[in-house]
Structure formats: C-alpha cells, structure tokens
Computed example of a mutant assay.
Amino acid sequence: MAQKVNEVMTPVPVAVSPDTSLVEIGVLMRQHGIGDVLVVHEGRLRGLVTDRDIVVRAVAAHRDMSGTTVADICSTNMITVAPDEDAEAAVRLMRRHAVRRVPVVDGDRPIGMVSIGDLAVQRDERSALADISAEPPNT
C-alpha cells in the first residue's frame, strides 16, 4: 500500500509571522537545523523562505538583515500538498516544479513539511540522500 504524505512529512513546521526579521529567521534555522521556514498570518500559509532565498534575495542584494522582513523576500507562489495524498504525488510535484520541499496543508493551514530527504528515506532508507538526510545538521 502506498504511503501517504502525512506518514513521511515532518509535522509541526517552524512558522513565523510576515514581519519577522531575517536575523530572527537565521536564528530559528540554526536552532532547529532546518533550511526553510513557513510564513503564516492568522493561521494561514502566506509564504515560504529558504536559506537560499536569504542568500540570493537579501545577502547578495546587500539588504539590511535586521531591517528586512521575511515578507520582503519569501516566496508566495507555493506548491502545496494535502496530508492524505500519496507520497508519490509529492515526488511528482517536486519534479515538475523543481523544488526540494513542499508545505503540507489542510486547506490553507500548514501542518507539516515534506522534503526530498523525507521522501528519499521513505523510498530507500539505504540511499545516499537518505543517509545524509538522517544526519544531524552542521552547526
């Protein structure tokens, strides 16, 4: 039987309000060992910011990290997946849209995050990507 997204996702993703500074986002990413944070307003998913977004849209653009908010640089045109969809649906979405992670939503409320690493572990726990994904983050 095919696994569902809610069986492979990381539940309770880290989320912040749109007015959170990029410095605060960086601190959260370091504390949690993650490379993505959801942007949520009134419980609804409004955006996604990744470590790459911070580098490309803020650092490389010489933006003030303390004065720039996550709303200024986050992606708002997101691909999402429902928790009861097959995990293979998430794989297809990632391939089609060339993304490494997809927010899991119940309606427009975020409940998890599914990453390429989560799916690698689900598909073949002995793969190199699964091994790397299982390792603790570099700090």
Rank of each mutant, 00 (worst) to 15 (best):
T139L: 15
R57M: 02
V5R: 00
H41D: 09
V27I: 13
G67F: 09
N138W: 10
Q31D: 15
G107L: 02
A134Q: 14
D84V: 04
V37N: 05
V105G: 08
V55A: 15
M9D: 05
V70F: 11
D19W: 10
G117T: 11
D124C: 06
R44T: 05
M78H: 05
D131M: 12
H32L: 03
I79T: 14
I73K: 04
V23N: 10
V49T: 09
D53R: 02
A82S: 15
A2V: 14
T80D: 02
K4M: 15
E88T: 11
E125P: 15
D72A: 15
L93S: 12
M1K: 11
D51N: 10
P83W: 00
A15E: 00
E88F: 11
G47V: 01
V40T: 11
D36W: 00
R95M: 07
P11A: 13
V39A: 03
I25R: 01
V40F: 03
S21N: 07
L93V: 10
V49Y: 00
R30W: 06
A98E: 10
R30F: 08
D64E: 11
R30A: 15
P18C: 01
V99N: 10
A90C: 07
L38C: 07
H62Q: 14
A98Q: 14
I25H: 05
E135D: 08
L45I: 11
N6S: 08
V102W: 01
P13G: 03
A134F: 03
E88M: 13
I116L: 04
V55H: 10
I54R: 02
V91F: 09
R57D: 01
P11D: 11
S17D: 05
A98P: 03
G47L: 01
V14D: 00
G107V: 03
A82N: 12
G35Q: 09
Q31R: 14
M94S: 13
I132E: 13
V12N: 14
P18Y: 01
D108G: 06
R57Q: 04
D53H: 03
M1V: 07
H97K: 05
K4F: 12
V37F: 09
V37S: 08
P13K: 04
S21I: 03
K4E: 13
V27N: 10
G117C: 06
Q3Y: 10
V59W: 06
R44P: 00
N6G: 00
S115N: 08
V14P: 02
T76C: 09
V91L: 13
L129P: 00
T69Y: 09
I73W: 02
T20K: 11
P18M: 03
V114H: 07
C74P: 01
A82C: 10
V27G: 04
A128D: 11
V105E: 07
V59A: 06
V91C: 10
P110M: 02
M94G: 12
V55T: 12
R92C: 02
V12Q: 13
T139N: 13
